[in-house]
């Protein structure tokens, strides 16, 4: 098993771990952190799989994608944190109110 493949597996593991935490925990900060861990998992997969043919030089394109992905993740996290503060400011706690009738 190559190094790159091991890193990719760790990335997939982080993605699943984050997905579990996103569903399992009620606190919004935990959910937002869980999404960030999922994102890091995806970025790790992208970086690890960049070295795919056994060449000396890894492919730079996935690295460029990760940079773009980080910018998107930072903006999304900022919006999520701002919304969380608004929700906890109105209700006094950072959890989503009881599930809607669906």
């Amino acid at each position: 098993m190559s190094h790159a493949f091991a890193y990719a597996l760790v990335g997939a593991g982080l993605f699943l771990l984050g997905l579990y935490a996103l569903v399992a925990y009620a606190h919004l900060l935990r959910k937002i952190l869980a999404l960030n861990i999922m994102g890091s998992g995806v970025f790790l997969v992208l970086v690890a799989l960049a070295k795919r043919t056994g060449d000396a030089e890894p492919d730079p394109v996935p690295h460029a994608m990760v940079i773009t992905g980080i910018v998107v993740a930072v903006s999304a996290t900022a919006l999520a944190l701002a919304l969380m503060l608004k929700v906890s400011g109105k209700t006094g706690q950072a959890v989503l109110p009881g599930r809607h009738q669906d």
């Binding site: 992905g69 999520a80 919304l83 608004k86 209700t91 989503l96």
Partner: peptide
């Protein structure tokens, strides 16, 4: 509106990360 926007955002981000993977 705030809490449904929050739920909407969490679902959106999870969906796009799955797509990105």
């Amino acid at each position: 509106a705030l809490s449904s926007a929050m739920r909407y955002l969490l679902a959106m981000l999870a969906g796009s990360l799955a797509y990105l993977l």
